[in-house]
Design a protein around this nucleic acid. Structure first.
Lengths: 176, 176
DNA sequence: CTTAAAGTCTTCAATGTTGAACATTTCAAT
DNA sequence: ATTGAAATGTTCAACATTGAAGACTTTAAG
């Protein structure tokens, strides 16, 4: 059973047989899968009147535990968007009453974003639906395959430096 | 060793132990990996004065084989962006002299986009560098792990419907 | 033929992101 | 204390994408 990326690899093989295009078999699929999954998730959120990024931020606050509060910088890093984008998103969440924005008294450069009661409700209401939709999108994979896929992607991500804080990979011949 | 998604899953487990958040372990990683990879590729293309989407379109034309010509619709589907976005992109590639745009005489609704000599040069110049960069980004994975990862993602993508054309191959065995 | 429907692309307003500049605030080294 | 650098957010212009509407062409049906 071939997918679109198989077709791409066939084409490269025909046109440039000297080239080992196999890395595209991994990277191309990661990108296409990401886009497909994102589309599926977005459609599901739309049914609940929510945007993907809204769920992302509310969920990040929710899972951070009491007091359900993070800095703008932490949200920016978690969502992998620039600080300017986070400012914009928070503006809109504040306008909808889902979070509050206050300057941190301990560090007045920093801004503390806190989930409101209303924001809590929203995330609690959609969380189960969201996970069910993710489940549905992964239906083609068995439980074991999902574990394998997650493990391989973890290895890849660690190699790409997608690790929690502590940027100290000086164990080897790293030269910055 | 844990990545950022491991942290996310730990948080959900602590806050919502009733919830099976494991699907996030797959989907979250696909999305983060996609973003990281895209960033890496973009930085590399920038060194060659190229944008990721430019390479994408030129590469799609190049690998399609002689006469290196596709319709706008085909490019739109391949890049997974709307037709409006493709019109815009082609405008800019035409302005740079990398492709030509002509209405197809056989079907005058359609527009034929053809790689120019200059466009050919650009893609040939960066192709090897691009694959080398992809290789580098995948360095954390062994050859065998890459094969496994590609296979699992293929299964996922087929399940998501990311297959070449033929929308209803019900009873017939596709021959192509 | 004529007409309606579908296909293909372009246009454009709305929207959201980036990247850079800027304003504060904190920290570190005198 | 003072000064310079780093940290943290906000602002804003440039730019790209989407989604819907429109223009034109082809196909299908009567």
């Amino acid at each position: 059973m071939g997918d679109n990326v198989d077709r791409v690899l066939e084409q490269w093989l025909a046109e440039r047989p000297d080239l080992d295009a196999s890395p595209m078999g991994v990277i191309g699929r990661v990108q296409r899968a990401s886009r497909r999954l994102e589309r599926g998730l977005s459609e599901n959120f739309a049914l609940h009147g929510l945007q993907l990024w809204e769920f992302d931020i509310l969920g990040t606050l929710r899972r951070s535990g009491p007091p359900y509060r993070l800095t703008a910088g932490a949200l920016s890093a978690s969502a992998m968007v620039t600080s300017g984008a986070i400012t914009n998103r928070i503006d809109r969440l504040v306008a909808k009453g889902l979070v509050t924005r206050e300057t941190d008294p301990a560090n007045r450069r920093s801004v503390a974003i806190t989930l409101t009661e209303s924001g809590w409700q929203v995330i609690e209401d959609v969380l189960a639906h969201h996970v069910a939709e993710e489940e549905r999108l992964l239906a083609a994979l068995s439980a074991d395959e999902r574990r394998q896929l997650a493990a391989l992607l973890r290895t890849l991500l660690v190699g790409l430096g997608d690790v929690p804080s502590a940027p100290v990979p000086e164990t080897a011949q790293e030269s910055r």
